[in-house]
């Protein structure tokens, strides 16, 4: 039996093509995207930092798909697996925390397309039936 988490993670991995992979590989955690996102600017809450909204998907990629991920898993250095609790916690960020304005991409030194990746992340939520009901 496949759990919701597995369904979501599988979809995340499927959605992570070389473009999204290069985003996760290149992000330097510089935090500049936060300075562009209206959700962060108007609330002051760090959780609205654009790259942070992608965290579960990033973790899934780094644990299961990234180069050296098998080596890191063997050595116990891979990031922890994604949990359902976490996915539920992130749902408001993924669905209500981004209006696809793409300002973060303008400011990002790595040109990371957060909005496009959030859309792909939503596909994972939908596949797992974790998307908010009203949608």
């Amino acid at each position: 039996m496949t759990s919701k988490t597995e369904l979501a993670v599988d979809k995340f991995l499927e959605q992570t093509d070389s473009e999204v992979a290069s985003f996760f590989e290149a992000c330097v955690h510089c935090g500049m995207c936060a300075e562009a996102c209206q959700f962060h600017l108007s609330t002051g809450d760090p959780k609205y930092t654009p790259i942070y909204k992608l965290r579960p998907m990033e973790r899934a990629y780094k644990r299961e798909k990234a180069p050296f991920s098998r080596l890191k898993k063997m050595l116990g250095l891979a990031p922890k697996p994604v949990t359902e609790k976490e996915l539920i916690e992130w749902a408001p960020l993924v669905y209500d925390g981004c209006n696809m304005c793409k300002r973060c991409t303008l400011v990002c030194p790595m040109g990371i397309d957060i909005a496009g990746t959030i859309r792909k992340m939503r596909a994972g939520y939908a596949a797992a039936g974790l998307a908010p009901e009203e949608l």
Partner: peptide
């Protein structure tokens, strides 16, 4: 190669691919 220091090489992939899209 195992760390985020790799951004010195991966930056062109990331910028480039979002540029492609």
């Amino acid at each position: 190669p195992f760390s985020r220091l790799m951004h010195s090489f991966t930056f062109f992939l990331s910028r480039g691919q979002s540029g492609m899209t």
